[in-house]
Measured scan of single mutants.
Amino acid sequence: DVEPGKFYKGVVTRIEKYGASINLNEQVRGLLRPRDMISLRLENLNVGDEIIVQAIDVRPEKREIDFKYIP
């Protein structure tokens, strides 16, 4: 289970102007929005990149997770 405040290694699977889709595994994925990137710009991400993200909002009833990137 993903817990708010914990850090996870994820893989960038899609990049859109509203954010990047991050997969932690086949069943768990979430969104990294541009506003939640401290020192990383969306255009510097590539599909397949592995990054460390922090879960900031977990809504299991909607199967949604928001991530934050902290270098």
Rank of each mutant, 00 (worst) to 15 (best):
D1H: 14
V2A: 03
E3V: 15
P4N: 10
P4R: 13
P4V: 15
P4M: 13
P4A: 12
P4H: 07
P4I: 15
P4W: 07
G5Q: 04
G5V: 03
G5W: 05
G5C: 13
K6I: 07
K6L: 07
K6C: 14
K6S: 06
F7Q: 04
F7G: 01
F7T: 04
Y8L: 03
Y8I: 02
Y8A: 00
Y8M: 02
K9M: 10
G10E: 01
G10D: 01
V11L: 09
V11Q: 05
V11M: 08
V11I: 14
V11N: 03
V11T: 10
V12C: 04
V12D: 00
V12E: 00
V12P: 00
V12L: 02
V12G: 00
T13G: 05
T13A: 08
T13S: 10
R14F: 09
R14P: 00
R14Q: 11
R14G: 10
R14A: 14
R14L: 10
I15N: 00
I15M: 03
E16Q: 11
K17Y: 13
K17V: 12
K17L: 11
Y18E: 14
Y18L: 09
Y18K: 12
Y18V: 11
Y18C: 13
Y18D: 13
G19C: 09
G19L: 04
G19S: 05
G19T: 05
G19D: 03
A20N: 01
A20E: 01
A20P: 02
A20V: 14
S21D: 10
S21F: 15
S21I: 15
S21K: 10
S21C: 15
I22E: 01
I22T: 01
I22H: 01
N23H: 13
N23D: 12
N23E: 15
L24H: 01
N25M: 07
N25P: 03
N25C: 11
E26F: 12
Q27G: 13
Q27K: 13
Q27E: 12
Q27L: 13
Q27N: 14
V28K: 03
V28P: 01
V28I: 14
V28Y: 11
V28Q: 08
V28H: 08
R29V: 15
R29M: 14
R29A: 14
R29S: 15
R29G: 14
G30P: 06
G30Q: 02
G30N: 02
G30I: 10
G30W: 03
G30M: 04
L31E: 04
L31V: 10
L31W: 10
L32H: 02
L32I: 05
L32F: 04
R33C: 07
R33P: 04
R33F: 05
R33M: 05
P34M: 07
P34E: 12
R35D: 11
R35T: 11
R35I: 10
R35P: 05
R35G: 12
R35A: 13
D36E: 05
D36S: 04
M37Y: 03
M37R: 01
I38W: 05
I38M: 09
I38V: 13
I38N: 11
I38A: 10
I38Y: 09
L40S: 09
L40H: 06
R41D: 10
R41V: 12
R41L: 14
L42P: 05
L42C: 08
L42F: 08
L42D: 03
E43I: 07
E43C: 12
E43G: 08
N44E: 15
N44G: 09
L45T: 00
N46A: 14
N46S: 14
N46G: 08
N46K: 15
V47F: 02
V47G: 01
V47S: 01
G48H: 02
G48K: 00
D49S: 03
D49K: 01
E50W: 15
E50H: 14
E50Y: 14
I51K: 00
I52L: 10
I52S: 03
I52V: 13
Q54W: 10
Q54M: 15
Q54N: 01
A55F: 07
A55M: 07
A55L: 07
A55Q: 02
A55E: 01
I56S: 06
I56D: 02
I56V: 10
D57W: 08
D57Q: 14
D57C: 13
D57K: 14
V58K: 04
V58F: 07
V58R: 04
R59M: 05
R59S: 07
R59T: 06
R59H: 08
R59C: 07
P60S: 09
P60E: 08
P60W: 12
P60F: 09
E61P: 06
E61H: 11
E61T: 09
K62V: 12
K62H: 09
K62F: 10
R63C: 13
R63T: 09
R63M: 13
R63L: 12
R63I: 08
R63W: 10
E64Y: 11
E64H: 09
E64M: 10
E64S: 08
E64G: 07
I65K: 03
I65R: 02
D66W: 13
D66L: 15
F67Y: 02
Y69T: 03
I70Y: 11
P71C: 15
P71I: 07
P71K: 08
